[in-house]
């Protein structure tokens, strides 16, 4: 198979997929995570240097460590690069419309409370177009774990600005620098009532994995924000040309601060990335509240 020197091709036909499938078997055999992946869908669509592979691996290892019954885990994604996660996991998985993964997940959870429902989607999907659903699910303490990969831009459509793009960030729709104030996703979740909020960069993979385990086992609305490089869409326009540049950046600018006030977790261009576990509390979930009110009625 002829490979270009940069290691990837833009034009991946079905033949090269099949070839890649064969090659993978030849080169390294089965991957330990293969049982959890729809290997017949690989290779994935993500660019070299993207943080999504790491985020997905952390999720899958966390899932195994959590001890959850995998037949009772459902993954829901919206649209975007991160939105493709639902299509790669060998679990009950739903690839929904842009911004609407959370309400779909709400229906799934309430339709079958035995399910552990995980929403795995991107920043544009969850807190820009889907921002209203995000805050309301947190407000209700709806029982779900949200893994939000934040790469500060719309990657799939070619690197546009969104509600998480830092002020000054160059994107294809903020060519002179972004002039809007961004959301801190973690602060938004905490302010809306999430019982668990953590943020890690993909460099801090072990810590990220541990937080996902905690989030998966936490009843109620839990959020894990994953800071990830998007060299193609965001990095190359913002002095982080390669994925590795972003990893160096996280190494130098990542500040682990457990219990940090979520309001003070804004991410500025060329500023520190505050990470850690910000919220770890407890309160009755939506369904517990629902049952509590009904029990009151029955008791009366």
């Amino acid at each position: 198979m002829e490979l270009k020197t940069d290691g990837y091709r833009l034009d991946r036909t079905l033949e090269t997929h099949a070839e890649a499938e064969g090659l993978r078997g030849e080169i390294h055999g089965r991957h330990p995570m293969d049982d959890l992946l729809r290997t017949d869908r690989l290779p994935h669509i993500w660019c070299p240097g993207c943080g999504l592979g790491t985020a997905l691996t952390c999720f899958l290892s966390a899932l195994l460590r959590s001890g959850l019954d995998l037949d009772k885990v459902a993954v829901v994604s919206g649209i975007g690069c991160t939105g493709r996660v639902a299509g790669y996991v060998r679990l009950d998985s739903f690839h929904t419309t842009h911004g609407r993964a959370i309400p779909f997940a709400t229906g799934l959870k309430l339709g079958n409370p035995e399910l552990k429902v995980v929403v795995f989607s991107g920043d544009g999907d969850l807190v820009t177009i889907g921002g209203n659903h995000f805050i309301h699910a947190a407000r209700r303490n709806m029982d779900m774990t949200v893994i939000c990969v934040n790469n500060f831009n719309y990657g799939m459509t070619g690197g546009q600005a969104g509600a998480t793009t830092p002020v000054g960030g160059i994107t294809t729709t903020s060519p002179y620098g972004n002039y809007e104030y961004p959301f801190s996703i973690s602060a938004l979740a905490a302010a809306s009532g999430a019982v668990y909020v953590a943020r890690w960069t993909v460099l801090h993979a072990r810590r990220l994995e541990r937080s996902i385990v905690e989030a998966l086992l936490k009843p109620g609305f839990s959020l894990v924000e994953v800071i990830a490089p998007c060299p193609t869409g965001f990095g190359r326009r913002n002095r982080l040309r390669q994925g590795l540049d972003a990893m160096h950046y996280y190494h130098e600018h990542g500040v682990i601060q457990h219990g940090a006030d979520p309001v003070k977790t804004d991410i500025e261009l060329e500023g520190p990335v505050i990470e850690g576990k910000f919220v770890d509390g407890e309160k009755p979930t939506f369904l517990e509240q629902y049952r509590r009110q009904l029990d009151r009625l029955r008791g009366a």
């Binding site: 739903f94 929904t96 609407r100 997940a105 709400t106 229906g107 959870k109 309430l110 339709g111």
Partner: peptide, 10 residues
């Protein structure tokens, strides 16, 4: 969407 999700939960 919630309706669709519930239907997919059976």
């Amino acid at each position: 969407n919630a309706v669709l999700g519930a239907s997919w939960a059976g």
